[in-house]
Design a protein around this nucleic acid. Structure first.
Lengths: 199, 199
DNA sequence: GTGAAAAAACGAACGCGGTCGGTTTTTTGT
DNA sequence: ACAAAAAACCGACCGCGTTCGTTTTTTCAC
């Protein structure tokens, strides 16, 4: 039976992933040791390294799943007939929800996402997927005539994403303190982006 | 003589700082151990912890000095009579120089700066100083009539800073690969911010 | 079935960041 | 001048992430 090994391997991987997820959620990333994860998954500490390159990678895997779930939801209700400003704010506000509920995770996650130590395939995939959705929102805006079609779609997507990132940083640094304030700032910046700041 | 202790203390601190700087530059942050820093500074490992809270903080101190030097230069030649776009791009391009020449540092530094584990006084000071300069550039733009004075100065400063951050992230993720490309992207985004993206 | 090769699991050990307790050096007060 | 207080210093140690070498389990040709 060529399947037994493979099945067991997948089970072990899942056990590690779930153990880590549980402990990370309960006590935070730093406060969870590899030994505890191993104990929870009922395997030896060293065995983990056959499945994940290091502790950080277990965390990233967890975040990836979370992000996947998050992106799935987003891809569904993007065809609304709302003004572009609302769609964009809604998109990022949804994204922000996860960060707000998992501040410690968010810090780790964004560090890795914004300034990765090494770019791997998964990371690149996420980039593409994330920016792809943004692109389609911008395109939609061009179709409804809310955005000038002469503007490069990718560049414009980057523009709005940058503003989101800026507000996120503001949140981490204590300039923004609630989700209401978050959306408000984001709206204000997006309006500037749409209308420009020239007289 | 109340001076002997103080003098020696300063000397030791400097020795640690210089030893760390030297080793970080030579072999990178991760590859430099506290023991090596201690050996280079000709003190015991534990002594370092009387001067710096942890390894990260030695690094931050180094970056702070570098940033100070960088900001000093910037504050001087801001009264040029160039168009606002050029001033802004010049401002950030100058900032980027340091990152480009110290990529590994930059990654660590920006992680800490954008998503700090804890906000301390020094960090807040830098925020204020950095945004203060940006504020004054924006004000200058309002005076020359290039920026609508009805826009909030702080918000507009955040806007341009966010775009800079976005391009930086792009650089780290491999979307931007040279300082020329960097300035080009930045200019394009700034132009969008100035003129808006509506038809 | 059987035995050898391949894969997976893991106990033991390593390296490094960080801490503790005790010793030495400097300052202070008389 | 000299003890007592304070500050600086450091050897030894701890905990954790990661690696190594060995043992156990699985596979598969015969």
């Amino acid at each position: 039976m060529a399947g037994i090994r493979e099945t067991k391997k997948q089970e072990t991987r899942k056990a590690i992933s779930e153990a880590a997820m549980k402990l990370f959620s309960e006590k935070g990333y730093e406060q969870t040791s590899m030994e505890e994860i191993a104990r929870e998954a009922e395997i030896g500490k060293a065995t983990i390294y056959g499945y994940f390159k290091n502790k950080q990678e277990i965390f990233i895997a967890f975040c990836d799943e979370e992000l996947d779930r998050s992106l799935e939801k987003l891809e569904i209700n993007k065809t609304d007939n709302k003004p572009i400003l609302e769609i964009l704010v809604g998109y990022f506000a949804h994204d922000f929800l996860f960060f707000e509920n998992n501040r410690e995770f968010a810090s780790h996650f964004l560090r890795e996402m914004a300034f990765p130590q090494e770019m791997n395939e998964t990371t690149r995939e996420h980039d593409q997927r994330y920016l792809g959705i943004l692109d389609s929102i911008i395109c939609h805006g061009q179709e409804t005539g809310e955005i000038d079609p002469r503007h490069d779609v990718f560049l414009t997507a980057i523009h709005f994403f940058s503003l989101y990132l800026g507000v996120l940083v503001g949140w981490f640094r204590g300039f923004v303190n609630s989700s209401e304030e978050f959306e408000q700032r984001l709206s204000a910046l997006f309006r500037q982006a749409l209308d420009g700041v020239r007289p």
